[in-house]
Design a protein around this nucleic acid. Sequence first.
RNA 1: GCGAAAGUGGCGGAAUUGGCAGACGCACCAGACUUAGGAUCUGGCGGAGCAAUCCAUGGGGGUUCGAGUCCCCCCUUUCGCACCA
Length: 843
Amino acid sequence: MAEENELRYDPATIEPKWQQRWAADPTMYAAEPVTCGKPKYYVLEMLPYPSGQLHMGHVRNYSIGDALARHMWMRGYNVLHPMGWDAFGLPAENAALKNNTPPREWTLSNITAMKRQMERLGLGYDWATEVTTCLPEYYRWNQWFFLRMYEKGLVYRKKSKVNWCPECATVLANEQVVDGCCWRHETTLVEQRDLVQWFFRITAYAQELLDGLDKLDGWPEKVRTMQRNWIGRSEGTEVDFFLAEQGAGDKEQRSDRTRIRVFTTRVDTIFGATSVQLAPQHALVAAFTAADAKLKTQVDELIEQQKKAREAGDLGAIEKHGVATGHFAVNPYNGQRVPIWVANYILADYGTGAIMSVPAHDERDFEFATKYGLEIRRVIQPVEQGEGSESLPFLSEDGVLVNSGEYDGLSCEEAQKRLQQVAASGGFGEAKVIFRLKDWGVSRQRYWGTPIPMIHCEKDGLVQVPDEQLPVLLPPQIEITQQGGSPLGRVPEFVNTTCPKCGGPARRETDTMDTFVDSSWYFYRYTDAKNSSAPYDPAKAQYWFPIDQYIGGVEHAILHLIYSRFWTKVMRDLGLIMNDEPARRLFTQGMVIKDGSKMSKSKGNVISPDDMIASYGADATRMYALFAAPPDRDLDWQEDGVAGVSRFLGRVWRLATKYAPLARTGRGQSIKAPKGLSLKLLRKLHQTIAKITQDFEGRWHFNTCVAAIMELVNDMQAADAQLAAGDVPAPVMLELLRSLVLLLAPFAPYLAAELWEELGEEGSVLHAAWPKSDPELAKEDELEIPVQINGKLVTVICVAADASSKEIEALALGEEKVQLRATGKTVVKVIVVPGKLVNLVVR
RNA sequence: GCGAAAGUGGCGGAAUUGGCAGACGCACCAGACUUAGGAUCUGGCGGAGCAAUCCAUGGGGGUUCGAGUCCCCCCUUUCGCACCA
């Protein structure tokens, strides 16, 4: 029995042994000083929220990052591979409510548990640079940045309609509203409330955020497209229509008139404007309805329709309704009076919340005008009359103006320029670029977040907390309740303070910051995590940045990844870094699914990493996560597959332990002109090295890397009888096993460490040099190449690797099967692709 | 509706530049060893056929000596955007 156990791969023994040894050396995964002279490599996985449990998505994410980090270590790079915790946020407060545990305790104990899981997985992080965002030593720098940004005019406060999630009892950023619902509560409709809020002026960087995307060629096109859409740049013109008051005629002074500013991308069609459409929430509508109860009812109906559509998550499909206000507006270009309508398809928060309606040249306006019988006036004629060019709406900008007074005959493009100039000189409009991107609302009426470091003084107004008073600490003892308003507002010791300017009594700001502030710059902190006098040393950040490879889920394509790009640009403008972008390359891994759908508690299809590790070990679990699918695709978790990888690791273990004694005796001897089995296996080895090395450099198809290692092991195992008979000399065996272990090291670090020791190697496999493929050895001397007739496979011939086309052709034509098929026919053409195939065209 | 990605055995997937379709693994079948192991080893495993062969990469067309790969049309799935004026 005991003897049998020895012949068995037992990760439950091997892995904890190494885990203990590694834990005893905390510098094992530490980066070297910036002066070390090695090229640097910063590999980063997105930091997790400390929910208390790693899920398979984490395991996959970190297995990819860890394999890359280990590979780069072995390639001789100075590697920074850190980990931290995105530790502020609502779940801690919910847990506090449920279990009566303070958020801080709950969060910190979750961190301990998850860190243990990570260590059990054997992930190579330098814990000396660990960042925990809920600790004062971190969040004080959120406050510090807030103040610097305030000083630069990048932080401001305004009363505005905000997205309010009744479930979270707090405000949400635009980015956190998904289909009109809360991103955390997918069925909870977000309400609009009027609140005074703090904002970051991300729109100041809108153009740069957009332009930067073109240079981020190491990012997935998908993510760049999503960000482009989100930023939503649009070039056009703002034009003032004037309210034509009843009876006022044209006598009134232009300056006294009420302006209705509209935004349009097609000012060239303005002579075709037959109405002005206002969003139901437009300020002018409020003025109209105040004097018109019937209109008010109708407008309220429109607002209700919009709300319902939002609820259905389908604002785009809303049926267009509108109501005429009875008021009129004057087109500034031709003085024409057009009716003012209110319509449910006009968005209050885009552009000016008002449009000119040109039914002849806009699909939506056409639909609306048709429905309500509004005039449709063509003002653009196609350059070339073609089929369909006469039908309306005519949307192309490839045309010339008609029915447009002095502008007739101009091309659309020319007309746009001219009309913009006219508007500007006439003082009733201007060329304008607008963005869909809105400023980032960061106020949250929650407890578990970074306190905003501002003070309200009756005498001095808004006053910054002086730097030397940072951090503004979260009060430790607080009763978490579900009632609305800022929880900090209920803690008098927190709220009541003195004004730093006048020394008089004052009140602290009680809002906390959105947790996306925390994750916008955490990766800079890793470079200098213990710094207590600055967020980080700019020299260290400059050495490490940009991040060479960032790895995470595509769900952060907008929120986190746009905020951190913004933050990087702000820090650059504060002189704290030199780079424009945080990460050179971004990799978005696919989801881990089970039976075709996302793992979730409600579906009961959640696979626990702990269970997998307990059954098959960390190596098998990690390796399966890399083997089951290419990393950018979704991965269907199949436990039988993990068992298969575990069996494979067992084969490796048995093979290596069986031949390690022989291999050890080969140390120091050189391999001379290998032949026969030695040559065959060495050739396979060097092909495998080349394949895997290449994959790490570009494609990242780790599934085929693992498959390649399996092929190598299968070849060795198939030769077991010959190996046992001593057909392969000791130095060759050493080369084979040593390289096998090195290739395995990024994917199965525990087994690699164990076998490295078994082979009698000194030092850690982590810093052993990655094997180099010898192209001479990898080259086949004989090739099997297919012979086709008219593209159909007929036979396979064996030729020398350096055979000429003529030789190959002769060989192919001499084949019995070929002759049989070719009799009575003419060989029209012979195609020989050296090293690939022969194709005979016969007729 | 617009845009992107994808569609290959019973399953996950491979085929990096147009060149032997199905590597590697799972599941399954047969056998060996032993006999109760989630063990190991050997062999088989897209379909039809005794076979030679033929048919097969969502469907249809095309380019080519040759197409899973390139082009056109269509279908399905997933994701993103969706009255953005």
